[in-house]
């Protein structure tokens, strides 16, 4: 036991360093400072969320693309009217129109709604859309104004037909309500 104790004391006893110890330590230090950056490992949940967000973005983009494609595949004729009639007492749309012959026309230039004139009532008041064009307007501005005017007429025509068909439904409801009760 004493032998063991002596060995332990000699092993754990303090030893003074050599004289050039400090110089050797300073020489071992690198000239450029080294910055240690601890990069934590990305957690598994974050990777999953990133993948999910990427998938959602791709799916949304695909849906938007499909929706855009479908909305652009509209009717062949845009703003075109082949035969237009006039709302009248019997045939709200096709009175005064012509038979369909030849290719369908495009552009609102063919629209010219006229109004039937029954004898028993006063002629309907049809207001023409008028817009004053300044004399100094350029050709392109005039063209835009003309296109806007025709677009407005197109819109009015669509509203006219819609109104006519609403009247058909309203008339049907009115006739039902006036049925005599026995």
């Amino acid at each position: 036991m004493s032998h063991l104790e002596n060995e332990l004391r000699s092993a754990l006893s303090r030893e003074e360093p050599s004289g050039d110890f400090a110089d050797r330590v300073l020489q071992a230090i690198p000239s450029h400072p080294v910055t240690l950056v601890l990069v934590p490992k990305r957690p598994r949940a974050a990777r999953t969320w990133l993948a999910t967000a990427a998938a959602v973005t791709i799916a949304s983009g695909a849906l938007w693309f499909v929706a855009t494609q479908q909305s652009s595949n509209g009717p062949d004729i845009v703003g075109g009217v082949t035969n237009v009639g006039v709302p009248g007492p019997k045939n709200p749309i096709f009175e005064g129109g012509t038979d369909r012959q030849g290719p369908a026309t495009t552009g609102p230039e063919q629209v010219e709604p006229t109004v039937s004139n029954p004898k028993s009532v006063q002629p309907p008041r049809v207001r023409r859309i008028r817009r004053s064009v300044p004399t100094q307007a350029t050709a392109s501005t005039r063209e835009q104004d003309a296109e806007a005017f025709l677009a407005a007429r197109q819109l009015c025509l669509a509203l006219t037909i819609t109104n006519a068909k609403l009247r058909v439904a309203q008339r049907g409801i009115t006739d039902r309500s006036e049925l005599p009760t026995t």
Binding site: G74, P75, I77, V78, G79, G80, V81, T82, N83, V84, G85, I93, F94, G97, T98, D99, R100, A104, E147, A148, A151, A152, Q154, L155, L157, A158, I161
Partner: peptide
């Protein structure tokens, strides 16, 4: 024998 097609899309509607 007679056909009516009226289309007012977003562009035409905006102009109108």
């Amino acid at each position: 024998s007679k056909t009516v097609e009226v289309t007012v899309d977003r562009e035409l509607m905006a102009m109108a």
